[in-house]
Simulated scan of single mutants.
Amino acid sequence: MLTNGRRDLVDIGRYRTHEDPIQIVSGTRMDKKTVHYEAPPSNSMTHEMKAFNDWFNQQHANGMSTSSLLAKSGIAHFYFLAIHPFEDGNGRIARATLEKSLSISLGRPALISLSQMIQSNKKAYYESLGEHNMKLDLTEWLLCFGQTVIDAQNNTLQIIECLIQKAKFFDRFATLINERQTTVLRRIFREGHHGFKGGLSAENYTRIAKTSASTATRDLKDLVDKNLLFKTGELKSTRYYINLEEGN
C-alpha cells in the first residue's frame, strides 16, 4: 500500500530480492567511501523476518506491561530498521511498528504522534541510529528514544489543549467577529499550539482573508480592541497573536 504505483521499484508488496547490498555509506568517491552499516542480504529476508516476528510476538505475549514497554518498542524499531526488509518504506513501517509495540504494552492505542516528533528532529534521530549501527549495546539509543516518546506525549497534550482552547474561543466570541476575521483566526488555530512562525502580519491577514490592506488594518484593529488579539512591534515589524487568556 505504501509503494503502490511506484515504477522505480522491483519488489512491491514483498521482501526485497535484489542482489545489491543495502549499505549506509559516507563519501562520494567509490574508492574513498566508508561503509557504516550493511543490512542482511536479500536472500535471508524470510529467515530474518521470521526471527523478528517470533521475537516481537514473544516479547508482547503477555499483553499489557509497563515494566519495559519503552525498551521493547525501541528495540523493535531498531531491529526492524536493521533488517531493512523492503525496497522502500522501511522507516514508515518501523515507526508504525514502535507505535504498535507501545499500544500492545499499554493495552490501548498510544495516542501520540511519534512519527511527527521523529520527523521534526530528524537529524538527531538519524545520528543516534547511526551511532549504534556497529554495536549491540543500545542503551544510549533507548535513552534517546525514550526522550522522543516523552516529547511526543507532551506534544500531544499541547495539541489537545489547543483544540480545547479553540472550541472555547469560538464559543465565546463567534458573534463578535465577521467572516473575514473568522477565516483568519481559524487559519491561525490550524497551525496548532506553535502558531504562525513569527506571528501573524497584516500582509498574511490580507492574503488569507482575500481582502484589501485597508480592510485588513481595520479588522486587525477591531480584534485588538476586543482583546481577541494582542500585537507586538511597530510598523512593518508588527505581529499579532491570539489572546488565549482572554479566550478562556
Results as ranks from 00 to 15, higher is better:
L2M: 05
T3N: 11
N4M: 04
L9N: 06
D11W: 03
I12A: 03
I12M: 03
Y15A: 07
E19A: 09
D20P: 02
V25A: 04
G27L: 01
T28M: 11
M30D: 07
K32L: 08
T34S: 08
T34R: 11
E38P: 04
A39M: 02
S42L: 01
S42D: 02
S44F: 03
H47S: 10
H47T: 11
K50Q: 13
D54T: 14
N57T: 13
N57G: 13
A61D: 14
A61N: 13
G63P: 14
G63L: 00
T66G: 13
S67D: 15
A71C: 11
A71G: 09
A76D: 15
A76L: 14
H77S: 06
F80D: 09
A82D: 09
H84F: 01
H84D: 06
F86D: 01
D88T: 02
D88P: 06
G91F: 02
R92C: 06
R92N: 06
A94S: 14
R95V: 07
E99C: 09
K100I: 07
L106G: 09
R108V: 09
R108N: 06
P109T: 01
P109S: 01
L111S: 06
L114F: 09
S115I: 07
S115Q: 11
Q119L: 13
N121W: 04
Y126D: 14
E131H: 04
E131D: 12
N133M: 12
L138H: 11
L138I: 12
L142N: 12
L143W: 11
F145G: 10
G146E: 03
T148I: 13
D151N: 15
Q153L: 09
T156A: 13
Q158D: 14
I159D: 09
E161N: 15
E161H: 07
E161G: 14
C162S: 15
I164V: 15
Q165E: 12
Q165L: 12
K168Y: 09
A174G: 02
L176D: 09
N178G: 11
N178K: 07
Q181E: 10
T182I: 05
L185Y: 00
I188L: 15
F189W: 03
R190V: 11
E191L: 06
G192N: 10
L200H: 10
N204D: 13
Y205A: 03
R207T: 08
S212F: 02
T217S: 08
D219L: 00
K221D: 05
K221C: 03
V224I: 05
V224L: 02
L228K: 00
L229M: 01
G233T: 00
G233M: 03
L235S: 07
L235R: 09
K236E: 05
S237G: 11
T238G: 05
Y240N: 04
N243T: 02
E245K: 04
E246L: 00
N248H: 06
